[in-house]
Simulated assay, not measured.
Amino acid sequence: MTIPIRQSLEGVFLTGLRPGTTRTGLPVLRARVRAQQWQREGETFTPGEPVTCDLVVFHESTQRARTRFRPGDAFIASGHVNTYNVTHDGKLIQREEFVARRLGHDAARTRYKVTRTRRRLRPATAPAAVTGSGRAS
């Protein structure tokens, strides 16, 4: 059995998720995010310069994701990096975006309260089934 492994991105939303569509008409959400880089120095890790990049989310429930994340929220995403070229002021610039397959709040860095509706208790025994017509003969 193999363990599926993907690239991941841990960061903070700088902008809210903005809706859009791809060239083929698929719904997509885009946001600017900041991720902290770390450098290994012997046995310790030291923080490097933070990186700002684009986050792209392709999913059927884009409306639900749009309402769940706001600027400043910490998140964890798994997916892959997409590299593309953009022409800006006559110069060809290479840009990167992180395409997220899964996106969720970073539970270690996000404070939230879980509210659940109370469940009705099921009866201990099922009611007896009624057989026959119920009329005396």
Rank of each mutant, 00 (worst) to 15 (best):
I5Y: 13
E43I: 01
T62W: 12
G90P: 06
T46F: 10
P50H: 02
P50L: 00
C53N: 01
R30F: 12
V28A: 02
E49M: 08
L121G: 15
P71K: 03
T117H: 06
E10C: 10
E41F: 07
V51K: 10
T21R: 15
G48I: 11
F58I: 05
P123D: 04
Q37V: 07
L121M: 11
T22Y: 13
V33Y: 05
Y84K: 13
P47D: 07
V28Q: 10
L55C: 08
G104P: 00
A136T: 14
N85W: 00
V114I: 15
F58Q: 04
A126H: 08
T62V: 15
T44S: 04
L9F: 08
A65L: 15
P71C: 00
A31K: 02
G79V: 06
V33H: 11
R118I: 14
L92P: 06
A126N: 12
T24P: 05
R6G: 06
R32D: 13
L29Q: 05
R109I: 01
A77M: 05
R66P: 00
D54F: 07
T110R: 11
R18M: 15
I76Q: 14
H80C: 06
L29A: 06
R102S: 00
R32G: 03
T131V: 15
R66I: 05
E97T: 10
P50R: 06
Q37M: 04
A77G: 00
P4S: 00
A77V: 04
G90H: 03
G11A: 06
A107E: 14
T110K: 04
A100L: 09
N85R: 08
G25S: 09
R34Q: 08
P4K: 02
E96R: 12
L17N: 08
G132L: 10
